[in-house]
C-alpha cells in the first residue's frame, strides 16, 4: 500500500492528463479541443512541480536561518512551459476565429464535409 501513498500525486496527474488528452483527440469542437490541450498541459505541469516538492520544504526564497527548500528548477521550467502554453492557446484561438469566418462553423465534421464537397 505504501506505493500508493507515495505515488498518489503522480496518479492524479496521470488521471487529469488522460482526461485532457481524451478531450483533444475525441472531441470535434475546435475550441473544446484546445481546452483539452490546456488541461493536458496543466497535468504535465503538475508532474513537474510534484517532483520538485521536498517534505517539510518551503518555497525556494532564501531567508535567514537554516531551512529546507523545495527544488526551484522544476518551477523555472514550468514557468516557461506555462508561457509557451498560453502562446499556443492564443494562436489557436486566432486560427479558430479565422476558420469560423471562412467556414461558418467550428465543428471539425462540418468543416470536413464542406471541404469534401468542393
Amino acid at each position: 500500500m505504501s506505493t500508493f501513498i507515495d505515488l498518489y500525486n503522480y496518479w492524479i496527474f496521470i488521471f487529469l492528463m488522460m482526461i485532457g488528452f481524451y478531450i483533444v483527440i475525441a472531441q470535434g469542437n475546435l475550441v473544446k479541443k484546445i481546452i483539452g490541450l490546456n488541461i493536458f498541459q496543466t497535468a504535465v505541469f503538475l508532474l513537474y512541480i510534484s517532483m520538485g516538492k521536498v517534505k517539510g520544504g518551503t518555497a525556494p526564497i532564501i531567508v535567514a536561518g537554516d531551512a529546507s527548500y523545495s527544488n526551484p528548477l522544476p518551477h523555472v521550467l514550468i514557468l516557461t512551459a506555462i508561457v509557451v502554453g498560453v502562446a499556443t492557446t492564443a494562436l489557436a484561438m486566432a486560427l479558430i476565429i479565422r476558420i469560423r469566418k471562412a467556414y461558418g462553423t467550428i465543428e471539425e465534421q462540418d468543416i470536413h464535409e464542406q471541404d469534401a464537397s468542393l
Binding site: V24, L37, L47, M51, L91, L95
Partner: peptide, 26 residues
Amino acid sequence: RRALTASYQYLVMGTIGATFILIGIG
C-alpha cells in the same frame, strides 16, 4: 482557406508531440 484548418491540425498534433516530449524530459 484550407491553410487555416491545416495549420490548426498541425498545431494540435504538434502541441501533443511537444507535450509528450516535455513528459519524457520531465
